[in-house]
């Protein structure tokens, strides 16, 4: 148990192209969060805020 990156960082891993540790789940989760952020921002700013009447211009 206790598999970690350092323990397995052998000589071949240093500067190698292949990654020993691939947190694909974390990457996917972050990609989903990212998409939610972008979509919410577009909705909140461009549609809800700028789309309303009487935008204050001065």
């Amino acid at each position: 148990m206790g598999r970690n990156e350092t323990a397995h960082a052998s000589a071949e891993d240093v500067g190698g192209e292949t990654e020993e540790f691939d947190p694909i789940g974390t990457l996917t989760l972050i990609a989903i969060y990212f998409a939610i952020l972008v979509v919410s921002w577009v909705y909140i700013y461009y549609i809800e805020f700028l789309g309303r009447d009487l935008v204050i211009v001065g």
Binding site: F49, R52, D53, L54, V55, I56, V57, G58
Partner: peptide, 26 residues
């Protein structure tokens, strides 16, 4: 329902400029 929104403080004058579109009632 619009972006025209300000505090109104006694002794101060809140100034907001907006552009109106077509006839409406708010």
């Amino acid at each position: 329902g619009t972006n025209a929104n300000t505090m109104v403080v006694p002794g101060e004058v809140s100034e907001i400029t907006v552009e109106t579109d077509g006839p409406a009632e708010y």
